[in-house]
């Protein structure tokens, strides 16, 4: 069995003979292709005619592009270069379809490629920043991240959380974002991060602790007197 690069590793593999083969004996119509499962599309993309391959690729892309775009943008905290990341991720995925051991898991495999790409970008920009090489990294673009329906409170919270996330190591930041922004369960987060459950838990916990320490949120039941005093002193002092 050919080795795969670490980011392309699948946690769970299924024998290919268990998969339902696409109707390879005849040309698949566009409608049929759209109704196929990911596993069938993968097989078609590998074994179909060139036209079928293109359609299978497009079907896979159309089905999972939204997931990839949102994943990349929410990890980055902006939409800068997101199209490049998604383009490269799909290209890598299509080029390595024959290395995919469980074609049913195309989505999570694609997700792990996106995560790996984003991780590289974050780490690169962090190192560039540390060495003062002038690349400040992607700015957090809260307008791009939040929808028009987001409440002011939600926007403020997200802005603060992303500002904090920017200062975290890439691995911790990604794990926390996948878990708390994207809403993946721990197992899914571990799969996307291509690491063990224990590792991803440790990363999330680290990021969580940092955010809890630095996030300013006294909640609705904050004692008003203390806040009053703080504000009063400051205002009074400024006069």
């Amino acid at each position: 069995m050919p080795k795969t690069t670490p980011n392309l590793r699948l946690v769970k593999s299924a024998p290919k003979d268990e998969l339902e083969a696409p109707p390879s004996s005849r040309r698949s119509s566009r409608g049929e292709i759209l109704e196929m499962g990911d596993d069938q599309l993968v097989v078609l993309a590998l074994e179909g005619s060139s036209d079928e391959q293109l359609r299978a690729h497009e079907a896979l892309y159309r089905r999972h592009a939204a997931f990839a775009f949102n994943l990349a943008a929410r990890i980055a905290g902006s939409t800068n270069d997101v199209e490049d990341v998604v383009h490269d991720a799909f290209l890598r995925a299509f080029d390595n379809l024959d290395n995919l051991r469980n074609p049913k898991a195309f989505k999570s495999w694609l997700g792990s490629i996106v995560v790996h790409a984003m991780r590289s970008r974050l780490r690169r920009s962090r190192w560039m920043r540390l060495f003062g090489l002038g690349h400040p990294g992607d700015p957090v673009d809260i307008d791009a991240l939040t929808s028009e329906q987001a409440s002011p409170g939600a926007r403020a919270e997200l802005a603060q959380v992303y500002a904090l996330l920017q200062t975290l190591p890439a691995d911790d930041r990604i794990a926390w974002t996948l878990r708390n922004v994207e809403g993946h369960d721990l197992k899914g987060t571990a799969d996307l991060c291509d690491c063990s459950l224990a590792t991803v838990k440790r990363r999330i916990r680290r990021a969580q602790r940092y955010i809890e320490t630095h996030f300013v949120d006294h909640g609705d039941d904050a004692e008003p007197t203390r806040l009053v005093a703080k504000r009063s002193k400051r205002s009074g002092g400024a006069k």
């Binding site: 497009e58 159309r62 939204a66 775009f69 949102n70 997101v82 939600a154 926007r155 997200l158 955010i211």
Partner: peptide, 26 residues
């Protein structure tokens, strides 16, 4: 414990997969 209210708002986050963007990348 953090009480992040946006986690209860399913529409707080923007959907980045606009049709134009999807077509452009495709």
């Amino acid at each position: 414990e953090l009480k992040l209210s946006w986690q209860d708002e399913p529409t707080a986050l923007r959907d980045h997969a606009t049709p134009e963007r999807l077509d452009r990348v495709w």
